[in-house]
Design a protein around this nucleic acid. Structure first.
Lengths: 125, 125
DNA sequence: CGCCTGTCTTGACGTCCGTCGAATCAGACA
DNA sequence: TGTCTGATTCGACGGACGTCAAGACAGGCG
């Protein structure tokens, strides 16, 4: 995973990005929206949402492509494409160990997205 | 808002949909992914993410289109199109009162999305 | 070394998306 | 009733997306 790992425009949202006041608390600035929207977009496909869940909930916190692919009625390249999308959105990390490639969730950005959507129970309705 | 309000395929995610165990806790089933992914997709555009925030954080919990539109360098029809997308994703409700149309966030689905992304602090990394 | 298996990239195709201008609809007001 | 303003819909355009088949690359093993 050396080449693509270096060439991909990996978004750095590992924790120090100023982003997190809930969406309903104050208006999200355009720059923040531009940074976070691609992450939501990446989750906006049923296949990727399931992939993300399978990776995040996997034993040991990581999942092998060889386990991911057969779970869908899609070709290998298509799954690979979706995983690349998740990688470019900063949602997962990939690592090759021998024959297989393992994907691992990045909890920091997931927490940021969750925080953005969080609403206090006393919010209208 | 009579005609379009009735004809749109409004998604009912008001609370009784079985959906909410965190993404990282157990694998999201295909049906759940198919229902929730469109909501993430709707938030996957910077303009819509800002619109959502402006609506959710507005005084009184609602925002007028006349206040939303001038906040962007986009035409009225384009903003209207994005608002329709948010509406169809079940993220907002629209109501016409006299001359103006007001949009209001639907906290239930926001909470569902937030819950899905929630991760316990003790999750790898 | 050569082959095999697993994964990714490339190129292509059809579809969906974001945007706009023009036309249309809904209320308010004279 | 007619007209004006605000919001949506319609039709169109360029670009991005999801998918696949075919080819290329990486690592293990004989």
């Amino acid at each position: 995973m050396s080449k693509q790992g270096a060439s991909l425009p990996v978004i750095d949202l590992t924790g120090d990005t100023p982003c997190c006041p809930p969406l309903a608390q104050r208006r999200v600035p355009a720059e923040t929206a531009a940074v976070l929207a691609p992450a939501f977009k990446a989750l906006g496909d049923p296949v990727r949402l399931q992939l993300m869940s399978m990776i995040a909930s996997a034993e040991g916190g990581e999942a092998c492509v060889c386990d991911l692919t057969p779970a869908f009625d899609l070709t290998g390249p298509t799954i690979s494409h979706h995983l690349k999308t998740l990688r470019e959105a900063g949602l997962v990390d990939a690592e090759r160990r021998g024959t297989w490639v393992y994907y691992r969730a990045r909890p920091a950005i997931l927490r940021q997205l969750a925080a953005l959507l969080t609403i206090e129970p006393t919010s209208a309705e």
